[in-house]
Amino acid sequence: MASVPDNLHYSKDHEWVRVEGDIAVIGITDHAQDQLGDVVYVELPKAGDEFAANDSFGSVESVKAVSEIFTPVTGKITETNDSLNDEPEKVNKDPYGDGWMIKMTMKSPGEVDSLLTAAEYEDFTKAEE
């Protein structure tokens, strides 16, 4: 069973958001990494890039497939996880920890409230299957 931590917000595109003050830390869920299989490449934006909610900010690739990744919130990138360049497998091993992808300053922090809770996301992934 894929892990779905309670303290995060989730998108229907299988990203998670952890709010740390006015910063949103974003990655893909355990369910998403499991569906993808071995992650071999992650393409991320640069610090300073700005995105609106639901914009594609990069892509994550397994041996077999390419998936776009979307920002669940609006804001400006402050930091990207460059260690994924050399160790993309962190996304599989620790999707909510070392496998994080970007940090953003949130333009409208209220946006996270429209995202799914852990329980809602769990129901959503079950319904998708």
Partner: peptide, 12 residues
Amino acid sequence: PVQYAAGTIGEH
């Protein structure tokens, strides 16, 4: 089956 639990890289 496209892959098993070991994953494509492990199987390869």
